[in-house]
Design a binder for these strands. Structure first.
Lengths: 216, 216
DNA sequence: ATAATGTTGTTAAATAAAAAACAATGCAAC
DNA sequence: GTTGCATTGTTTTTTATTTAACAACATTAT
């Protein structure tokens, strides 16, 4: 058993919370806070202290009894767990509204998410740059991936085209796909897919609205 | 007790799944499929049939023994549960990359999510239209909301500005906020907030990549 | 009509997640 | 040093979620 895959099975619920811990710790760090206890963090984040301690202990003991957690150390350790202790090379397929917006998203570079190129079939876009990122023809996608060691592909195209691209990508050395197409994908070859469904997020908001009462 | 708030407490896990059921049923409906059993749907969606039946039964009995579910009927019923059986009036605050992309997102109108206006402080944008949607000054936000019966506000601005806007919105008649700012908000007055954190989604992908092995 | 079949709605069991409790231990004060 | 305090890491308990089981019942075939 190697170290990575032998890590005790971590539930999706915990994985969902990790980036949130990371964000709050990043803010504390920026404010110059050096140490924090699970109970302080708990009231800040609106979760129980017990959950924080238990979540963290799935990955090792990062705190000190009687002291709490060193903010910077814990921040860095969670960064390692999340795999953002090193940069990631990314390309975007689809230079439409969403693809362009995601590619130019200001927060990504600071987490080491670097978008190197965009791919599109629109002749009018090919050859131009958007937010300083070159737009290349989709026909060059796989060769670009291999030549530049791309790890992650952002898919921002309609589902029909996405299906075909997904198939093409299965043969490449990428490790993950961040999928915004309106359908769920799974991939072979150990390539991980994170399906994002913006409409569904908005529907959940709609649900909450429909099932809550206005308080005046 | 009124019918809405008396509904048995529904877990977040179930609410997360509802839009997904809705999407699959919509596709089946579009394909002309008239009926489907929980077990057929289960293999389609990669969940257990038991979970489907149990999820649906939180909202009532939509199926028929020995027959299954009528696709169109179930689709409509879930639409009602999600509150998308009627249109929603929406405005976007922030006419930057993300705000513009979301406002022009093709999938929203078909669910009745109609974006009527965008608000920004950039003089260069004010007065123009993006994807056919007028860009207005932020100073007009609250009056526009009240005059046009806006229900939902999309927040696509940095967190510092967002905090202030959130405060302003608490006095209005809106029912929900779809927040893309890089921080979590809660609101008073029964206004619901759905916090979307794109960075965190990408970090989860990064986690999965870091903790999986490549299969060649 | 009647019987056989299929499939739900619902109850029960199993599993997973979260919260609480607490023993172990490092830190700070004296 | 020794004692008391704070706070973790870990175990136990509780709660929630998921899966399985099954009785009830509609549909279909005969």
């Amino acid at each position: 058993m190697d170290s990575k895959s032998s890590r005790k099975n971590i539930s999706q619920a915990i994985i969902r919370r990790l980036p949130r811990y990371y964000r709050y710790l990043g803010e504390l760090k920026a404010e110059g806070v050096e140490r924090i206890s699970s109970s302080e963090l708990s009231s800040l984040m609106n979760v129980t202290a017990s959950q924080i301690r238990q979540d963290l202990n799935n990955f090792g003991g990062f705190g000190q009894q009687g002291y709490g957690y060193n903010v910077e150390y814990l921040y860095d350790e969670i960064g390692k767990i999340l795999g953002i202790d090193r940069p990631h090379k990314i390309v975007t397929v689809g230079a439409g509204n969403l693809g362009s917006a995601l590619s130019g998203y200001q927060n990504f570079p600071r987490y080491g998410f670097n978008i190197l190129a965009m791919f599109d079939n629109d002749e009018a876009k090919i050859g131009s740059t958007i937010h300083g990122i070159p737009v290349l023809p989709v026909s060059k996608l796989t060769s670009y991936i291999e030549e530049n060691g791309i790890e992650i592909v952002i898919l921002a195209i309609p589902k029909e085209e996405a299906r075909q691209i997904i198939h093409t990508l299965e043969g490449t050395s990428i490790r993950g796909v961040w999928n915004f197409a309106h359908t769920d994908f799974e991939m072979s070859g150990g390539i991980v897919v994170e399906n994002v469904h913006l409409s569904e997020s908005l529907m959940r908001l709609s649900y909450e609205i429909a099932n809550s009462e206005r308080l005046d």
